[in-house]
Amino acid sequence: MDASCPTISVIIPSYNYGHLLPRALDSVLPQLAENDELIVIDDGSTDDTATRLAEYTTRHPRLSAVHQENAGAAAARNHGIRLAKAPYVLLLDADDELMPNALNVLRAIVSRDTEVGMVLGAQISVHPDGRERLRLPTAVPKASAKELARRYLLSKSISISHCCSLFRRDLLLQRPYPENLRSGEDIPVFCHLLVSAPVLTTEQALARIHKHADSLRHLRDDEEERALTIVDEVFSSLPTECQPLRQRYRAQRYLSLFRAALNAGEMPRAGYFYRRALRLNPLQALRWTYLRKGLRWLLSS
C-alpha cells in the first residue's frame, strides 16, 4: 500500500452519545499509526457531543469532527466513508470501544493480502447486567456468490457485525448504506461485501460491543414495509446468480416478523405473517422450527 495514504480510517457515527463518546475515542486514538485517521460524524446531536468533540480535536490533530443535520446512522456512515482517505474502513459505534492492539492486528492482516474485501474479528459482547461473552467470527468458506448469500441471508451461518470488522472502502462506495432505512441498513452492505471479494477472519477480539435494550433492532413500527424494503435493497446490488434467492429471502423476512408477533402475543398479526411466508415458500415455512411456532399460533387462535 502507498505509504502516503492512511492504512485504516476509523469512522464513528454519533447521535446524542456525548456521555459515551470519550470511551470510544480513547480506545482508538492511542492505536492510530502515523497515516491512520479517525473521523467522527456528529449526526445532528442535541446533547454535549459538539463540546466533547471540540475538546478532543484541539488535542488530537488526526481526529476530524464533522457535523451534519440529523439524517440517521446510514447517512452518517456514508458521509464518513466518502471523506475517508484510507483503503480500509472500520465503522465503530459511538457506544462501543476497540480492544487494545485491534488496529495493529488488522493492519498486519491486510498488509499480507491487499485483495481482501473484509476482515471479520471476534468481539466481546457486554450485556446491561455486566455479563461479558466472547463471540468468535464464523468461518467464511470459499464458495460461489450464491452460496455465500444463501449462508448469510437464509441459513444465517455467517455473521457480520460493525466495530469488529474491517471493510474495503471501494466496496463500500459501490454499495452505500441505504439511507431510506433506519434499521437493517447494514444487511444489503454486508451481503454485497461478502460476495464481492475474499473474506478473512481472526479470532483476536477487536471490540467490546455494548448491548442495549432500546436498540433500534427492537422497534416494530412499519415493520412489514421495512422488511420488504430490505429485500429490495439487498438484491438490488447482488449479481444475477443470486437473484433466485430473492423469494426465499422474502419468505424469511415474513417468518422473522411472524416470530416477533408471536412473541409479542399478537396472534392475528402472527397468522398474517405466517400465511404470507407459507405462500412464498412452503418448504421454508414448514421447517420444524417454524411449523412448531405455527402450531402454537393455531392452538392459540
Rank of each mutant, 00 (worst) to 15 (best):
M1V: 08
M1W: 09
T7F: 12
I11E: 01
P13D: 08
N16D: 13
Y17W: 08
L21T: 04
D26W: 09
P30Y: 03
A33P: 10
E37W: 03
E37C: 00
V40T: 04
I41P: 07
I41C: 09
G44F: 06
S45C: 06
T46R: 12
A50P: 08
T51D: 09
R52C: 13
A54P: 05
E55Y: 12
T58M: 08
T58C: 15
H60N: 10
R62P: 05
L63K: 01
S64E: 11
V66W: 04
E69N: 06
N70V: 10
A71E: 05
A76C: 04
N78M: 02
H79C: 12
A84R: 05
P87H: 08
Y88N: 02
V89E: 03
L90W: 02
A94L: 09
N101D: 14
A102S: 15
N104Y: 03
S111A: 14
S111P: 05
G117Y: 03
V119M: 00
V119Y: 00
G121N: 13
P128M: 06
D129K: 06
D129N: 15
R131A: 09
R131N: 09
R133N: 11
L134V: 12
R135P: 01
T138I: 06
T138L: 07
A139W: 10
V140T: 11
K142W: 10
A143P: 02
A145E: 12
K146F: 04
E147T: 12
E147N: 07
R150H: 15
Y152R: 06
L153P: 01
L154Y: 14
S155A: 15
S157Q: 10
I158D: 04
S161Y: 03
S161R: 05
C164A: 11
L166S: 07
R168G: 04
R168K: 13
R169Y: 10
L173I: 11
L181R: 07
E185D: 02
E185V: 07
I187R: 00
F190W: 11
F190C: 03
S196G: 09
V199C: 13
L200D: 03
T201I: 14
T202Q: 01
A207S: 11
H212M: 07
A213S: 11
H218C: 09
L219Y: 12
R220N: 12
D222Y: 05
D222T: 00
E224R: 11
E225F: 05
R226Q: 13
T229G: 01
V231G: 03
V234K: 06
S236Y: 06
S236A: 15
S237L: 09
L238Q: 09
C242S: 12
Y249P: 00
R253G: 03
L255W: 08
S256Q: 14
S256H: 08
F258R: 09
A261P: 06
L262D: 07
P268C: 03
P268T: 00
A270M: 07
G271K: 05
F273H: 11
R275N: 13
R276N: 15
R276M: 14
A277I: 04
R279H: 10
R279A: 14
T289S: 15
Y290R: 00
Y290N: 15
G294F: 08
L298T: 15
L298I: 14
S301C: 14
